[in-house]
């Protein structure tokens, strides 16, 4: 299936990212786990200040099956501090960091809250996108239809294992951007960028005009720049969250994200 020009109005997230991309910028989307510590909202502001184009906010789940050790640890810490989906959204509604926020979480939290209720709450708190990695194309319909009505873009993922026949259908249903899974594995820092990262981004781009951002296994400024030779942007999670777990705080986060930004802009 090639990119058939669907007549639909792009949502807030999509418009923001398209505007940036079409102006020649690469898209930088850092990830943090909500509720990790007392400073997490300050970290959000620091990330925006350091050049993030959108921010992925992880709502911690007890069984993060696509996450590796670092994000498992951050999820556990956040849960031990009493972090709940409702609390996270309430916190987010009190800040305005100036870039779109995208929630990343697992489907049970969405299902438990109820699609309409949580989509509405997301909208109210300024969230404009949602990444739900255990809700693949065949299962996403019910949620995505409700999220569309609330201007919450349901970002779908394409993996290196996804055959070309599926990519078109996934891109068609994806909103905001298409999340290219950079390697076959769980989230976690990698010393070497997998070949699959650029390869999958290229395959997706043949099917869509949506921005294509690569996440999972993009850990360093160099890797971000390399991926962006093909992709429109990157999502960087574990490398940032590890720094937060080490206590480097908003300043450390800003410094790291600034270095990603610089490498992507130079590339």
């Amino acid at each position: 299936m090639s990119a058939s020009p669907t007549i639909r109005t792009p949502g807030t997230l999509e418009s923001a990212l398209l505007t940036r991309r079409d102006a020649g910028h690469k898209l930088l989307i850092p990830y943090i786990t909500a509720g990790l510590d007392d400073e997490w909202l300050l970290v959000l502001e620091a990330l925006a200040g350091a050049g993030a184009d959108a921010i992925e906010v992880g709502v911690p789940f007890s069984d993060p099956m696509i996450d590796g050790a670092v994000i498992q640890e951050s999820s556990l810490r956040a849960l031990e501090r009493g972090t709940t989906p409702e609390g996270v959204l309430a916190d987010l509604s009190r800040v305005d960091v100036g870039v779109p926020l995208v929630v990343m979480t697992y489907y049970n939290l969405i299902y438990r809250a109820g699609h309409a209720r949580i989509a509405g709450a997301m909208h109210q708190s300024g969230v404009r996108g949602a990444i739900i990695p255990d809700l693949p194309l065949e299962e996403v319909g019910g949620w995505a239809a409700v999220a569309d009505l609330e201007d919450v873009a349901t970002v779908l993922l394409v993996a290196p294992s996804t055959p070309d026949e599926r990519i078109g259908a996934i891109c068609e249903r994806s909103r905001g951007f298409v999340y290219a899974v950079g390697r076959m594995g769980v989230t976690g820092e990698q010393a070497v960028l997998a070949d699959s990262a650029r390869e999958v981004a290229g395959r997706i781009q043949a099917h869509t005009d949506l921005p294509v951002c690569v996440g999972i296994g993009v850990s360093t400024p160099d890797q971000a720049a390399t991926v962006c030779e093909v992709a429109d942007g990157v999502v960087v999670g574990s490398a940032l969250v590890r720094r937060l777990l080490e206590g480097r705080g908003p300043d450390g986060a800003a410094e790291f994200v600034g270095s990603l930004r610089a490498a992507m802009d130079a590339g």
Partner: peptide, 12 residues
């Protein structure tokens, strides 16, 4: 029932 797995596992 259903198949609530990450995309990476759907083809498998």
């Amino acid at each position: 029932g259903g198949r609530y797995v990450p995309e990476a596992l759907v083809p498998a």
